[in-house]
């Protein structure tokens, strides 16, 4: 699971859960791989992100580096910054671990990089 995906996932699908966001991450195995950088794409995706969630996720994995805690202005023209965001969004991957619902504590396992978001019948 990349942090871009983590930024979008929630547990609101569970019956009785109000917000279900952001999901906590308990990582046992994290992998860093190189992904081609696309300036235009990264600037386009930033406004769609929840910045706090991204920062906290990266931080909890020990990979926030010098990513600023709040989103900077004029990021479109700041390649150095865009590269940092690119790294955090697409190159860090949780291979093994769990996502945790902030309201119920329900755990969603992540195995071989795939978050399991399937729910039991009594949960929906």
């Amino acid at each position: 699971m990349k942090l871009l995906t983590h930024n979008m996932l929630s547990s609101r699908c569970i019956k009785g859960v109000d917000v279900g966001y952001p999901l906590g991450i308990q990582a046992k195995d994290v992998k860093i791989s190189e992904v081609g950088f696309n300036n235009e794409f990264v600037s386009r995706i930033i406004p769609k992100l929840d910045w706090n969630t991204l920062y906290n996720a990266a931080d909890s994995l020990g990979h926030a580096g010098d990513l600023p805690q709040t989103l900077i202005e004029d990021f479109e023209n700041n390649e150095e910054f865009l590269r940092k965001v690119h790294h955090v969004l697409l190159e860090i991957e949780v291979i093994d671990g769990e996502l945790v619902c902030p309201e119920t504590g329900r755990k969603f396992p992540i195995t071989s990089g795939i978050p399991n978001m399937l729910l039991n019948e009594d949960e929906v």
Binding site: M1, K2, T5, N7, M8, L9, S10, R12, C13, Y21, S33, E34, V35, G36, I45, K48, D50, L90, E93, G113, I114, P115, N116, M117, L118, L119, V124
Partner: peptide, 23 residues
Amino acid sequence: PDDVEAVLCDVTSSVISSRWHGV
């Protein structure tokens, strides 16, 4: 194709919630 990933879920359930919309 390392830049791809998968999510295990029912596409027709509400797991793909509004956070994903328009992304």
